[in-house]
Design a protein around this nucleic acid. Structure first.
Lengths: 183, 183
DNA sequence: ATGTCCATGTAACGGGTTACATGATTGC
DNA sequence: GCAATCATGTAACCCGTTACATGGACAT
C-alpha cells in the first residue's frame, strides 16, 4: 500500500518517469521503503487508471519512449490525506539474523562469534553510508532545490538511521563479549 | 522462507501443535518474526510432506483433534545447516512512519508534532513491554527448562530490542525539538 | 569483449494478510 | 449475554521478488 504513497510523494516534488522514481528511492527512502522497477511500472499504471497521476510521452530513439508522470489534483489530495493521518501501530519487523541468533544457543561459541563479527562488518559499512553518502546528498539536494522544510525532515530520518546503526554496533560489541564469556 | 526455520527451531525445543507454536512465537520471536495461524497450518503441512516433521494425533472432544508435530532427523539437519550459515546481507526494512515523516516537510508544524508524540506513546509502551514482560518471561523460561545457553541468546536479542526502543525514544525527543525550532 | 546506464515492460511464483467456517468451554 | 481460549483449517487476494525480453550508447 505504501509504494503508492512513495510514488505520489516523489511526484509531489515534480514530474518524473518510473525509472527516475526508482533512482530517487534508491538514494533516499530505500532505507525504510524500497521497490523494484518490476513493481513500480505496474503500480504507476494502476495509479494512472485511478486518475491519481497522468503521463506525457516523450519520444526517444534507441530506448523506449519516456513516460513522464505528473501528480493529478486527486492524487495530491489522496497523498495529503494519507500524510496527515497519524500512524497508530508499530510496524512489525522481520529480521532474519535475530531469528537465527535467537536459536543459536545450540551452536558452539565460535560459530556464533563468526556470525556476530560478520554483522559488525555489515553494519560498519551501513553506518559509513549514512554518514558519508546520505548526509552530503541531502545537503546538496536542499541547496539545489531550496527545499529547506523537506530537508529538515529528510535529515531527521537519516539521523534515526545513523543512530540505529550505532546502537546495533554497540550491541554487537556487548553481544560478542557476552558470548565469549557465557556460551 | 524463515517461517519454516522458526517452526523447525521451536520444534527443536520439543514436540508441539501449530497452535502452541503460534503462542511461542507471540511470546518471543514476534519482535523479529511473526506469522498468523492461517500461514502456520499450511506451512506445517508442507514441512510434513517434505519429511522435515512428523505428527501424532491426539483425539479431543468438542475441539478439533490435536496434531502434535515432532522434528524429524532430516528436519534437525536442515535446521542446523540454516542455523550455522552466516547472514550475508542486511535485511531491508519497511517503516511506514519514516516514509511519512520523510514527506512531512509540506505539513504544518503541529500535524508533524502530533505524529511524533503519537510515536512516543507507542514506543514507550513497547519499551515497557521489553523490560517488564519479556525479561521476566525469559528468566522464568530458563529456570523452568534449564536452557541456560539458549537463555543467553534470548536475552541478547531482547536487549537489542530494548536498546532500539531507547534509541527511538531519544531520537523522538530530538526530532520534536528540531521540528519545533525549524519547521 | 564485458559491463553499466538508459528505459520500458510481462509472467510466474512465493509469501503473507484478511476473511470465512466450526464449535465447546471458561471467565466477566 | 459477550468475549476470549482452545484447535483446526480453506479461499481469495495483495504485495513483492525473480526471471525474462529488448536494444542502443558509452566506458574499461
Amino acid at each position: 500500500m505504501s509504494l503508492k504513497y512513495t510514488l505520489l510523494g516523489f511526484l509531489s516534488f515534480g514530474p518524473m518517469t518510473g525509472y527516475e522514481l526508482k533512482k530517487q528511492m534508491d538514494q533516499s527512502t530505500q532505507l525504510f521503503w524500497h521497490a523494484a522497477l518490476s513493481q513500480i511500472y505496474p503500480t504507476l499504471k494502476r495509479l494512472e487508471e485511478q486518475g491519481l497521476v497522468t503521463f506525457d510521452v516523450e519520444p526517444q530513439s534507441g530506448k523506449p519512449d519516456k513516460k513522464i508522470y505528473t501528480l493529478s489534483e486527486a492524487g495530491q489530495e489522496d497523498f495529503m490525506t494519507w500524510l496527515s493521518k497519524p500512524v497508530d501501530k508499530l510496524s512489525p519487523r522481520k529480521v532474519p539474523v535475530l531469528l537465527k541468533l535467537f536459536f543459536s544457543g545450540v551452536l558452539d561459541k565460535e560459530t556464533v562469534l563468526t556470525q556476530l563479527r560478520h554483522q559488525q562488518a555489515l553494519h560498519r559499512v551501513q553506518l559509513a553510508y549514512y554518514e558519508q553518502e546520505i548526509k552530503p546528498y541531502i545537503e546538496q539536494m536542499v541547496e539545489v532545490t531550496g527545499m529547506v522544510r523537506e530537508g529538515v525532515m529528510w535529515e531527521l530520518t537519516r539521523q534515526l538511521g545513523e543512530e540505529n546503526e550505532r546502537t546495533y554496533l554497540r550491541w554487537l560489541e556487548q553481544a560478542i563479549e557476552t558470548v565469549e564469556e557465557k556460551l
